[in-house]
Design a protein around this nucleic acid. Structure first.
Lengths: 267, 267
DNA sequence: CAGTGGTCTAGACCACAAC
DNA sequence: TTGTGGTCTAGACCACTGA
């Protein structure tokens, strides 16, 4: 009769996975769970805490109880590309829709650069670097938020001090292209990470939800050398967002081995 | 003197973040932590458990103790594109390097299709669909692993029953292109997720490490309609891997607004 | 065999929200 | 007011590993 916390958690996890315990449904109280499985309340609580850490259940305050968390069935898929209109560049197809979350604004500061960004910029970790930070949101749904930090290479700031002003994010790419006399080449690197407490707060992340992080580099060639002029660090909920890219075809023209497909690889 | 578990966890977290407690270093025992902060061992343990769930510390067995986890400083960055050689298509630039992890092989089965895959394939959730599953690894480092499930659209299986045999992953794209008489268009959608227990086991994921998931769709046009012939579901450690894509430029030719950059947007 | 973490118990008090 | 989860305590026994 008596079971371990992990066994109880597994049983509840299975109930949720199969849908026998539907999202939004209330689970038995800790007392009831403890009695049912012949354990103490602490043990029942540990099982529920495990599920909470996994993002499967949530507690509501007061006399309400424990509930199966309603998880978004579908993510907001963002097809990534760089577009522009008369005001400047925008990444994604619906950025015009986004606004700054109430109480925030684009903040320009000089801050110690974290190691991973420093490596991309080619500067020493912890050195002071100009960064513009913002917190964007979706006016139709407060939960869709993203944090954006734009780190500028010191050489760019030296050449274009106006970038430390409030020129707007779209504007900096025009300034950089004017200065470099060429179009920027962008790359995006995507990682999954555990949010820091401050990121979890800013993005309204429930426990157990990972971060989807997109790190965009803006590269130009200056005096014959490639320079990463800007690193754009975008963090969003891994549960609410996904990003999508077309997969480029490489090397195809060199190996047209299959007769039926060879025609397509001549160019 | 007496503090809460969350306060103790925050203090330890800060020590780790600043490097005052270096990776690999041993932390005080639970008894010592409890005495130091004037709490019971259970409370000290709860603080450490929190850090363990975040992937910051790990316990080692027996008489050893609690240690600051050594986290990989750099990820394996995979520049995503589709390449081919004489044997077929490969995604990424170093796939030849990979092998099946010992004890696994490519497994072809007919399984109920999960809802998210079903939606992409345009079939009902839970319907039986042919899938090839494999677990790949890096011969030089056992921790670098990835799980790959390739779901085939029923129409493709009906036309190309040979695909249910052991034709190899590279081979199926050649077969599909021969059948469709055209090159495949690939897209990749990237998400961050919490691993299921079985995924955590297969990928050797420590607690607190999220999953990086790449869902590749292979699209062809058949009889004037687009058909997703295959969905390739790739899962890997979010701590060990990242994926990288070039960002395509769109709409630029339509809005050459900045005089200095206008020349670049004519074509 | 001694010391580590792993786990469980029984009881206590608290804050909070619904009734 | 009552029942919910949130948290802490003191004590017990276990499995494991390194000395």
């Amino acid at each position: 009769m008596a079971q371990t916390a992990e066994e109880i958690a597994s049983q509840l996890r299975e109930l949720i996975r199969t849908g026998a315990a539907a999202p939004g449904e209330r689970l038995p109280t800790m007392e009831a769970l403890a009695a049912e499985h012949g354990v103490s309340r602490q043990t029942a609580r540990q099982a529920l805490n495990q599920l909470k850490a996994e993002g499967l259940v949530e507690y509501k305050g007061g006399r309400t109880g424990t509930f199966v968390r309603e998880r978004p069935g579908r993510r907001m898929v963002r097809s990534r590309s760089m577009e522009r209109d008369g005001l400047g560049y925008y990444s994604g197809s619906n950025v015009q829709h986004w606004r700054l979350v109430a109480g925030t604004r684009t903040e320009v500061a000089t801050a110690p650069v974290p190691p991973d960004i420093a490596e991309l910029l080619g500067v020493g970790a912890g050195e002071p670097v100009v960064v513009r930070k913002r917190l964007n949101g979706d006016p139709e749904n407060e939960r869709f938020r993203q944090l954006t930090d734009s780190w500028l290479h010191p050489a760019v700031v030296a050449e274009l001090p106006a970038l430390t002003g409030d020129s707007g994010l779209g504007g900096i790419y025009d300034r950089i292209e004017e200065w470099a006399g060429q179009p920027i080449a962008w790359e995006e690197e995507i990682t999954a990470a555990t949010p820091s407490p401050s990121e979890a707060t800013a993005l309204l992340l429930p426990p157990g939800v990972p971060l989807l992080r997109v790190i965009r580099t803006s590269t130009v060639r200056i005096e014959g050398k490639t320079l990463i002029a800007e690193v754009n660090d975008i963090r969003m909920s891994g549960e609410l967002f996904s990003v999508k890219y077309p997969l480029t075809r490489r090397g195809a023209a060199a190996w047209p081995v299959t007769p039926a497909t060879a025609d397509f690889y001549q160019g």
